[in-house]
C-alpha cells in the first residue's frame, strides 16, 4: 500500500470537550447513544480485518469523546456498502456515522487522497465511476 496514513492533528480541529458526538450527530442525524454495542455491524463488515477500530468501537470512541478516532483507518476503509446500516438491530445508520467522521476532517480542507498520486496508467485502466466515488469520499 503506497499511501501514508493521514495524520490529523485533532487539536487543530477546534472541537471542544464533548463536542465530537454532537458534531457527528448533527452531520448524520443518527442517535449514537442508541447503540448497545452488540457488534452486528462489525461482524458483517467486509473490511473488518483491515480495520484498526471495529465499527462498534468507532461509535464508542465518539461517545467517549476520544478524538483520536479521527485518525483511525476504519473511517476511510468504509466504502459505504450499507451492510451495517441494513443489519443494525437499533436501526442506526453506521454508514452515515462513518461519513460524518470523514466530513469533519474533509471540511477542514484536509484531503485524504492526493490527486497527483494517481498514475496515468491507473487513470486509463480503472473505470471512471471509481474515480468519482474516490473523490467524493476522500477529497473535500
Amino acid at each position: 500500500m503506497k499511501k501514508q496514513e493521514a495524520i490529523v492533528d485533532v487539536n487543530s480541529l477546534n472541537l471542544k470537550k464533548g463536542d465530537l458526538v454532537k458534531e457527528v450527530e448533527e452531520l448524520c442525524g443518527e442517535n449514537l447513544f442508541g447503540c448497545y454495542q452488540c457488534g452486528t455491524c462489525s461482524a458483517g463488515c467486509p473490511f473488518i480485518e483491515d480495520m484498526d477500530l471495529s465499527p462498534d468501537e468507532v461509535i464508542r470512541y465518539v461517545i467517549l469523546d476520544r478524538k483520536e478516532v479521527l485518525n483511525s483507518k476504519t473511517i476511510w476503509l468504509c466504502a459505504a456498502c450499507y451492510t451495517c446500516a441494513e443489519r443494525c438491530p437499533r436501526d442506526i445508520n453506521i454508514t452515515k456515522i462513518m461519513e460524518a467522521l470523514r466530513q469533519i476532517i474533509l471540511r477542514k480542507n484536509i484531503d485524504r487522497t492526493n490527486l497527483t498520486d494517481i498514475s496515468k496508467e491507473e487513470k486509463e485502466s480503472i473505470p471512471q465511476l471509481a474515480f468519482v466515488c474516490l473523490f467524493r469520499k476522500n477529497v473535500g
Binding site: K2, K3, L77, A80, I118
Partner: peptide, 20 residues
C-alpha cells in the same frame, strides 16, 4: 453474493480489493 467488492478502493488499495 451481497458483499462489497472493494468499490473505489481499487485505486488506492489494490491488494485489499484483490483480497475481496
Amino acid at each position: 453474493k451481497i458483499e462489497c467488492c472493494g468499490s473505489y478502493h481499487t485505486i488506492e488499495e489494490k491488494n485489499l480489493v484483490s483480497n475481496r
